[in-house]
Each structure stands twice: as structure tokens, then as C-alpha cells.
Design a protein around this nucleic acid. Sequence first.
DNA 1: AAATTCAACTTGTACGTACAAGTTTATTTG
DNA 2: CAAATAAACTTGTACGTACAAGTTGAATTT
Lengths: 255, 255
Amino acid sequence: MNFVALLYEQVNRMESSTQYQLLYLRLKKEILADVYPIGSILPSENDLCAAANLSRSTVRQALGQLETEGYIIKQKGKGSIVKSKSRSLNLLSFHGFSAMVDKTKMSTLSVQEPSYSSWPEDFHFELSELEKAAACIHFARVRAVEGRPVMYELTFVPNLNLPNFVRRFKLNQSFFEFLAKEYQLEITGMEQQIWAVAAPPFVAQHLRVELNSPVLKINRKYHSNRSHLNLYSILYCNTEKYALGNTSGVINQSI
Amino acid sequence: MNFVALLYEQVNRMESSTQYQLLYLRLKKEILADVYPIGSILPSENDLCAAANLSRSTVRQALGQLETEGYIIKQKGKGSIVKSKSRSLNLLSFHGFSAMVDKTKMSTLSVQEPSYSSWPEDFHFELSELEKAAACIHFARVRAVEGRPVMYELTFVPNLNLPNFVRRFKLNQSFFEFLAKEYQLEITGMEQQIWAVAAPPFVAQHLRVELNSPVLKINRKYHSNRSHLNLYSILYCNTEKYALGNTSGVINQSI
DNA sequence: AAATTCAACTTGTACGTACAAGTTTATTTG
DNA sequence: CAAATAAACTTGTACGTACAAGTTGAATTT
């Protein structure tokens, strides 16, 4: 089976399928496109039934999937409230000591504009034959909080059916939102490995820390809804002032 | 409302409730008690219907919750296979470069046996009044892989309705499994913060690394099914040979 | 003996009904 | 006008039916 056939199969798997999945996909797209912005309430289950000519159980199945993936929160008596525009993946992200870092205080510096190249010789993850054969899209950027560099990020993407990526992607926008909007490419999962390492020269320079001072190194492999397309990142983090943090599980703070 | 009243309310919330939740709780307990060991198959949906005198939709709701919490995997045509004895929390855990570290090669060294004490003065998480008023159960241990220390773990637990903890808990057993079995205390969520720091003397000693070499420091707050009881850990990790890693999201590796 | 077919299982999808329980808004009542 | 009440919503739980689709193992055929 060649590559084109594989792609067609994937599209079929995504687009045909069952009634509740079709509704789920439609609602997800509409949430992403701000038809239902964050904080708004989806049409009631009965309205969705009437509009799509489906039974309530089927509608509830679609909404249930949206809920478990973190897009909406359902509230008895009220409705389904849009919570987030992306599946909660539980990435590590920067936190202050109490609250999350204010997004308005974050800035992005370009280190390496997007370009097509070959894969690094000593790449940190195993690549499939398909990925090896494709060109490697590479870019690098530094994230800063209040002007202080906190993260140096190198990204590697196999150029598989991502037309005009280099021309279209600008470093100061959200990478994941760009992929979702332009290519309907959604990140569905991730693996990562974390080390504490002594900062090598190029890292010390970009993060403005002393040579050999302790920094976090994170290797990430992102999985997507295209089964042969994975994204790769190497992150170096300066945790002197801001820690990396995350939250997992259902936190029950009732009473 | 006093503490005892709160406890009663919690027990009521857990034990009364709905049909599918009762079945869910019963099956979860039986999985934990090895009535259905890992890898085994639960009774079929129809069998569960007949045994509990419930409709299939209700049974499926209970199984669905077990599935989303990571206890079972459902397979069309086969059945519900027991996958894990605890909710998958997506903690960071040690990995080798390719496969997970062999559990038989892990050992635990005692650094500080469990004892009752007061809370540290400069504790890393905000404590509630209830927690502050309780005594602090503290212990510390070092985890080693192939004789090489990789993690130094300090644990702090408020002594709230955990009778005879110090006498009953042995450091070489799983802390979470002990809590589930002895006190029906389940970990439901977690927050963590991560830094790369220069190893201070006591850490360098326990992890057998050079003073000021880079190590991971992780502060964790575990949430439990008792809404006023949280567990706290400080971890120091030597990542020279083994990285910390995790996986999140649904990984779709079909085709 | 090996391959095929078929029957008996399993879970998945989709429809339907009925009532419980929480929220909001309009109505009634004092 | 303010408060209590009622009606009209919302989602949650629980029951039922029917068929589709995947898995397994026994029966049949080759």
C-alpha cells in the first residue's frame, strides 16, 4: 500500500464513521472556529437532536467525548460550556510561584526561521522510514517572560503533506493552532523525557545563564491525528525564576 | 460544620449515589483486590446485567468510567480487559533510553523511617488550617536502579484519620497501594513543579553525585478522594543515566 | 489433516421512553 | 416592590429494543 492510499484511508476513517463521531467532529471544528467561543454555551441536547435529526443518546455520546477531551464542561440544569480550544494534553508549562505566568508578559524571539533541511545526524528520537525520506522542517525560538529568556525550543517536523509550511508559518504565532487551522492537524498525544543538564555554550548564550549552570532539557515527540506524522521538539528551560509545572487528574475541590 | 460531619458527608457521597456508580465502585474494588487480576477479562456486559439486575446501558456507563480512568480496556468482540490497578495519573517516571526501567532492578533504601513530627517551617506548598493543625507524618527514601541512586524522595502527610500509619507502613512497599488497601485512600490528581538545580550537600550525598552537579527537583501535591487530605512530596532526581519521562493523550498507532 | 464455514459469543452504535434533579425565568402572591 | 411559587427549561440516570461488527471455537467440508 503506497503513501497516497494510506492517506485516503485515513481521510475515510476520519470523515465517514459513525453519527456521534460526525457530530463530535463538527462541534469540535465549530469550537475551534469560534462559532462557540470559550465560555459560551453549546445548543442544548434537545436542540442538537432536532437540528441533526439524532436521538438524545447519540448526541450525549458526542458531547461526552468533547467533555473527556477537555473541550467542554457539562453542568446539570445549565448546559455544555466551552472550556478550551484544544485537548488538554497535560504538557509541562511555565508557572509563577502561585499563579500562571501572565500571557501578556510572554514574548517570542526568533533564533532560526523555518527552513527545509536534512535531519540531524544524532537525532534524539527514532524516525520511521517515511519520516526519514521526507525533508525536515526546522525552526528555533526563545520564549521570554518579562524580557527574561526562560525556554529555548528547537522544533523538527517531517515535511509530509504540509504545503508551503515555511512560507506560511510565522514564529510569533501558536504552532499548534497554526497546524489545526491550516492543515486540520491535531496533536493527540505526546511522549517526553526530562533531564537536568549543565548548560552547554549555545544554550547558556540563548538563555543568558552561566555556562554549566543547571537547566532542564526536555525531548518531546508529539503524535498527531495523521498516523505517520509526528512532531519533535528539544527544549532547554531556565528554571531559576520560573518553574515548569502541570496538573493531572480530576481535582475534586468541592465542599 | 465540624470535621466529623464532613467525613460523614463524604462517606455518604461515596457510598449512596447511583446504580452505575455503585457498580463502578464494586468493580474497582474487585480489581484492586485481585478478584480480576491484570490481564484478565471482566464478566461480559450481559453477565453483569444479569448478576446486578441492571440494564446494559447502565452497566456500560460503569465500564466506561473504569475505561476512562485507565483501569480497563474494552475490545470489541472480546471483552473488558483489566489494564491497571490504579488510575493512570501521568506522573513522570523513570525510563531507560528505549524501554522502561525493569522493576526487578529497582531497590529502595530507607533514609528516614516514618515518624510523627511538626511541619517544616519553610514548607513548599500552602497548607489548609486542618492540615496545619494535624501532625505531620514524614519519611524519606532513596530509589536506586541497578544499585545506582536515581531519586531521593521526601514525603509529608497530614495525620488526618490515618490510624497507626507509622506502625503499619513499611518503606519498601508501594505507598499508593498501601493507602488504597489500608485506608481506601485513592490519589485522584496531582500538581507538580519542576526545576533544574545544583545539588545541595545532602542531595549530592544521597544521590552520590558531585556537589552542585545538575539534578531535577520536583515538588508535588497529590489530591485524594478525601477532600481535605493532600499528600506532599519533594523529589530530587539524578538524570545522568536515566531520564524521567511520561506519555500523555491517546496514542493512535493503528495501521 | 487442513481449510472453510457457521454459530455463539463479545462490544459498538442508534433508536426510543420516562422520570429525577438542577437552573433560570416568568408568574403569582403577600 | 419583594418574596415565594410555578413553569419551562437544562442535563443526569435508568430502562428498553434492535442491529452492526469483531472474536472465538466448534462443526462442516474439502
